[in-house]
Design a protein around this nucleic acid. Structure first.
Length: 417
RNA sequence: GGAGGAGUGCCCGAGUGGUUAAAGGGGACGGACUGUAAAUCCGUUGGCUUAGCCUACGUUGGUUCGAAUCCAACCUCCUCCA
């Protein structure tokens, strides 16, 4: 399995990125012989990608690092259709404006991982709306549709799931895989792409693209998929206490992002170091060998390294320092997330429930009340027992803030402005 | 177009006239234990101006003292037939 000779495949294999490869020896040879242009598609379904997409971004990163050329394909066109693969229900259709806005917002984080430009090995970001939007239905059916067998399409697991569950699959969604296959062909024409990567749930879609390449262009395409990642206890990657772990800093702060990785399960530490950091394998082995509570030091390195890749070294170290002060010294860390409350309001006194809601620690007064009753809320580290307690300006500490905590891990600084 | 079946809270899923804000499970959150881990155990899990009130079982009406439960129409999905 890991007898790969090319840098790229060897690296991916050693670091645990590979789930399936379409033609191992053929692809390995290709990577040794020439600069390969490969791509991964991203759905602009939200204004940011989340931690679940990080593995794909890392694959593009390694592709470039080992001397090849990555393309990040934004599914601006396919996003208008919606990928039905393994989904229970039809995805809500998005408007063009939403999609365009999302793409714009997603773009930013890629530049942290890839070097864009016009050079041979420079990364490119493209939008499949560029060629999908202008398609002529009849021509498309004749040129592309004739190569697809519905019988075969129905046999793909991604589709079968929906049918077996007796859930409807609209013709619109059914076409998604055809469009995605067509992307592969189009990218080959435009950029000489011969290689596509993706999550293992994309295997069927990608294979369709390879077949279409054969039939339309008599070209040889290759595919590689990454394993579907879950934590050791089975949770999906990218979900956390507060919801999805977004990559954009305006949705999830560098500190929160750092915390997410800091709380990695023991059993996942080595795997995550390999997948999400660029630390050398030897060092990872050494770090992962630490047992018992010493592994906490390794988790901090994991958190800092992953955060540094995304948000920069400074932001990562700042997050690490904030966490250190808060959790190891029990001190008030200046850089904790904060919420601003008008000075007048605070002087007049504000109910804890309302404050919890304002701070985003509770979704409603009712939830806030339950948290108080459950003994989870503290102000300046003093437990709050009375659900009607009032917080006022005289509780501001010397630093001019009030530390509001929910549970042992969530701390918010209340600032008077 | 015809015949039959289904639509419940974040998700799955019970419930066929009243003590049902709706069993059970999952997930999530909080607590205990720990190492800011896992596992385990306990608690919480519609909203509000909370001894009360409001909203909620696809939608809209109806029957009834009283409906998630009965009736009608509509919407959506599934299966078979055309």
């Amino acid at each position: 399995m890991s007898g790969f000779k090319s840098d790229f495949l060897r690296t991916l294999s050693e670091r645990g990125f590979i789930h399936q490869v379409s033609d191992e020896t053929g692809l390995d040879t290709l990577f040794q012989k020439e600069i390969v242009t490969g791509y991964i598609g991203f759905d602009p379904t939200a204004s940011s990608l989340h931690a679940g997409s990080l593995i794909q971004i890392m694959m593009l990163h390694w592709l470039q690092q080992t001397g090849h050329r990555p393309i990040a394909l934004m599914g601006g066109g396919t996003g208008m259709v919606g990928d039905p693969s393994f989904k229970d229900e039809a995805r809500k259709l998005m408007t063009e404006e939403t999609i365009a806005g999302n793409i714009e917002s997603i773009k930013r984080c890629f530049s942290q991982y890839l070097t864009f430009g016009d050079g041979l090995r420079d990364a490119v970001m493209v939008n499949n709306a560029d060629w999908l939007r202008g398609l002529n239905y009849l021509e498309f059916l004749r040129d592309v549709g004739q190569h697809f067998s519905v019988n075969r399409m129905l046999s793909f697991d991604s589709v079968k799931l929906r049918l077996d569950r007796e859930q409807s699959l609209s013709f619109l969604e059914f076409n998604y895989m055809i469009l995605q296959a067509y992307d592969f062909v189009e990218l080959h024409k435009r950029y000489g792409v011969t290689f596509q990567m993706g999550g293992s749930d994309q295997w069927g879609n990608i294979i369709n693209g390879i077949d279409l390449g054969h039939r339309m262009l008599d070209a040889q395409f290759y595919a590689l998929t990454s394993p579907l990642l879950t934590t050791s206890s089975g949770a999906k990657m990218g979900k956390s206490a507060t919801g999805a772990v977004w990559l954009n800093a305006d949705l999830v702060s560098p500190y929160a992002f750092w915390q997410y990785w800091r709380n990695t399960e023991d059993a996942d530490v080595e795997r995550f170091l390999k997948l999400y950091t660029t630390l050398p394998l030897g060092e990872i082995t050494r770090l992962a060998a630490l047992g018992g509570s010493e592994i906490n030091e390794t988790k901090k390195i994991l958190a800092t390294e992953v955060t540094a890749l995304l948000h920069g070294r400074n932001a990562a170290e700042e997050a690490a320092e904030t966490a250190r002060k808060t959790f190891e010294e029990g001190a008030l860390a200046e850089n904790l997330p904060s919420v601003e409350i008008p000075r007048d309001t605070l002087h007049a006194g504000m109910g804890v429930q309302a404050l919890l809601v304002q701070a985003g620690l509770a979704a409603s007064n009712g939830e806030a009340r339950r948290h108080i009753q459950g003994g989870a809320v503290r102000i300046n580290d003093e437990p709050v027992k009375d659900e009607r307690a009032v917080v006022s300006a005289d509780q501001l500490t010397g630093e001019g803030v009030i530390k509001l905590s929910l549970g042992r891990k969530k701390h918010i600084l209340v600032r008077a402005v």
